[in-house]
Amino acid sequence: MRQGDEQRVFPEVDRLVARGEAHVWWWRSPDRVEPDDLRLLATAEFRRALSLLSERDAAEFVHTRAGARRALGGLLGVAPAEVSLGRRRCPGCGSDGHGPPQLDHPAVPLAISLSRTAGWGVFAVGAGPAIGIDAEELRPVREALLSDTVLTVAERGHLDAVASGSARQRAFHRVWTRKEAVVKAVGVGLAGTELGRLETLPEREGPVRVTHHAADRASAWTVQDLPLADHLAVALARPVGPAARGAVHLHPPA
Rank of each mutant, 00 (worst) to 15 (best):
E180F: 00
S29T: 14
S95P: 02
H105I: 01
R170K: 15
T64Q: 09
T177H: 09
V83R: 00
V122Q: 01
G4T: 04
L50V: 07
D230N: 15
V175M: 07
V122P: 00
A220D: 15
R174E: 06
T117W: 08
A111M: 04
E155F: 06
P106V: 05
D160I: 06
R174C: 03
E194M: 13
A49E: 05
V122E: 00
R47W: 03
R89L: 14
P129H: 06
G77Q: 10
R28W: 14
L72W: 03
W27D: 01
S166E: 15
E180R: 03
P253E: 07
R70H: 12
D216E: 15
A167W: 01
R32P: 08
G119T: 03
E180P: 00
T222S: 15
A254H: 15
V24I: 05
P100V: 01
S115N: 14
F123H: 03
A49P: 02
E199M: 08
R245P: 02
A191L: 07
G119C: 06
A171E: 10
W25M: 04
T193Y: 04
A185P: 05
F123A: 07
L159H: 05
A254K: 12
L250G: 02
E34M: 13
E12R: 08
V24N: 02
E143S: 13
L201G: 00
P129I: 05
D216M: 15
R19K: 12
P80K: 01
L85I: 15
A111H: 01
E82L: 05
R156M: 12
P109R: 03
T177I: 08
R88G: 11
A161M: 12
W120N: 03
R48S: 09
L52M: 14
Q102G: 05
T193M: 04
V223F: 11
L75C: 09
R139L: 07
S51L: 14
V13E: 09
V122I: 09
H105D: 06
A18K: 11
P252K: 04
V162L: 10
L40W: 05
D104S: 09
E205C: 14
A163G: 07
P91F: 11
V210F: 01
A243K: 00
A66K: 10
H98P: 02
D160H: 07
A58T: 10
H23N: 02
L75Q: 01
A218V: 12
A154K: 14
V210H: 04
T193R: 01
V248F: 05
L114S: 03
V208R: 12
S115E: 13
A144T: 11
A247R: 12
V223H: 11
V9S: 08
E137N: 08
V240A: 10
R170T: 14
R139M: 13
H98A: 01
A127W: 11
G206D: 05
Q224K: 02
V141A: 08
Q3V: 12
T177W: 12
A161C: 12
R69V: 09
P35E: 05
A66G: 12
A71H: 09
D230F: 09
R39C: 14
L40Y: 04
G74F: 01
S164K: 06
G187W: 09
G165Q: 08
S51R: 14
R174Y: 02
D96G: 15
E45A: 10
C93E: 06
A185V: 04
D160C: 06
V108R: 04
L198D: 11
G86Q: 03
P253W: 11
D37T: 04
Q224I: 05
L110P: 07
G4S: 10
P35A: 08
P35L: 02
P91A: 11
A135M: 11
G241T: 11
